[in-house]
Design a protein around this nucleic acid. Structure first.
Lengths: 126, 126
DNA sequence: CAGGATCCGCACAGATACTG
DNA sequence: CAGTATCTGTGCGGATCCTG
């Protein structure tokens, strides 16, 4: 509601419901979310905490924990805790999390197609 | 190069070249870029500085200027200055800028499809 | 009209140390 | 092993005032 109004009224083909897109982008606006999702996607199965940290590469424990908590909160990953000693926690993508792969692929395509042109533009820029 | 290696080696279907996508997302990771692009897209033609500010809605002069400068630098919008008094500046999308509409549409679709489910997940979250 | 300059607050993110 | 706690810094963004 409220937002939905602006979503659906994507007046013409060019306009694209920017508010909704912006809201969607807000989900992975931070530095690590996409990298975590990517690592889980590549693994194609659950990953444990430290395996995930290694797969992402360069992420601190704090940031990994925060990022995962956020993803779990939004229903993009599941966290399953095994009551064992030492403890074990598995993270995996939910169907929603997996479904993000499609739009990301579109973005990847766009990036590949326009990356060079943008690089040139940057160089040409005064 | 360097990046490209990691781009192309999108090992399987699921993995999606996350580093490249993350780099692409960095272009509009900030609060206003997508909204500016959306305003220009809706206008379907050049917009003057203050018209753009009104179209975006809620953006400060500082942020508008910074955002536009960045977009110009990356070759997504053009800035044409008319040497008149009072001055007049037109902003318009470049082909690259327009081409971003396609992946954004994919993202919009995804958002529309999963928005509710995520909302439910958030409510269910302890 | 279209900005530039400046000051400030705050959320995001990094590093380190500690714990059930 | 899988976190939590704390401190700290920095870049984004807002508000206000000034100018060619």
């Amino acid at each position: 509601m409220g937002v939905t109004n602006k979503l659906v009224r994507t007046d013409d083909g060019a306009s694209v419901g920017c508010l909704a897109v912006n809201e969607a982008v807000a989900l992975f606006r931070d530095k690590w979310t996409l990298l975590c999702l990517g690592a889980l996607s590549k693994a194609d199965g659950p990953l444990r905490y430290h395996a995930l940290q290694a797969a992402v590469g360069g992420i601190s424990q704090r940031m990994l924990t925060l990022t995962l908590k956020n993803l779990e909160r939004n229903g993009l990953v599941t966290r399953t805790l095994f009551a064992s000693v030492p403890p074990r926690v598995d993270y995996a993508l939910t169907p929603i999390g997996r479904s993000l792969g499609a739009p990301m692929k579109a973005l990847l395509h766009w990036s590949l197609e326009n990356h060079e042109a943008m690089e040139r533009a940057r160089r040409a820029y005064v």
